Simulated assay, not measured.
Amino acid sequence: MGKVSLNINGRKYGMGCEDGEEERLIRLGQKLDDRVNLMANQFGQIGDIRLMVMAGITLLDELEDINSNVDAQVDLKTGQLRSENTQLITSLTRTETKSVNALESAAEKIERLVARLSEGDP
């Protein structure tokens, strides 16, 4: 199990993580420290817990906005793909109908030709 030391708002926090996740945890800790520092600059040193809660809430708010945007984009793309799929099925159905009609016409011509040739046989 990996261990890292995070410095958030001037305090050190020892954290455990899965092996290989140390760099990611350090990067995330730095992002949290940046956000806490931003909050401290805006509101002053109002206490570690309040700063952490405010930083956490603002980060979660941003994450929720991002998720909403992703969901909207997925919905839009899904609608576009469904429309394209419907158009392709319609086109395929038309092509299939034309092909069937052409084969039926060719079969009728062959049958007439065979009938004519049969009439000419002794």
Rank of each mutant, 00 (worst) to 15 (best):
K3G: 06
L6P: 04
N7H: 11
N7V: 10
N7K: 14
N7M: 10
I8N: 00
I8D: 03
N9R: 00
N9L: 14
R11F: 02
R11I: 02
M15L: 14
G16S: 12
D19H: 02
D19V: 05
G20A: 02
E23I: 00
E23Y: 04
E23P: 01
R24F: 05
L25K: 08
L25P: 01
R27Q: 12
K31D: 05
K31R: 08
D34G: 02
R35G: 07
V36N: 04
V36G: 03
N37Q: 09
L38F: 04
A40L: 01
Q42W: 00
Q42M: 09
Q42F: 00
Q42E: 13
F43K: 08
F43D: 08
F43E: 15
G44S: 01
G44W: 05
G47F: 06
D48C: 06
I49H: 12
I49Y: 08
L51F: 02
M52I: 14
I57A: 06
T58G: 04
D61N: 09
L63Q: 13
E64H: 15
A72Y: 11
D75E: 15
T78W: 05
T78D: 10
Q80A: 05
L81Y: 14
L81D: 00
R82D: 12
N85H: 09
N85F: 06
T86P: 01
T90N: 13
S91G: 09
T95W: 04
A102P: 00
L103D: 09
E104C: 08
S105A: 13
I110N: 09
V114N: 10
A115E: 11
R116Y: 09
E119H: 08
G120Q: 12
D121Q: 12
D121N: 05
P122L: 08
P122S: 07
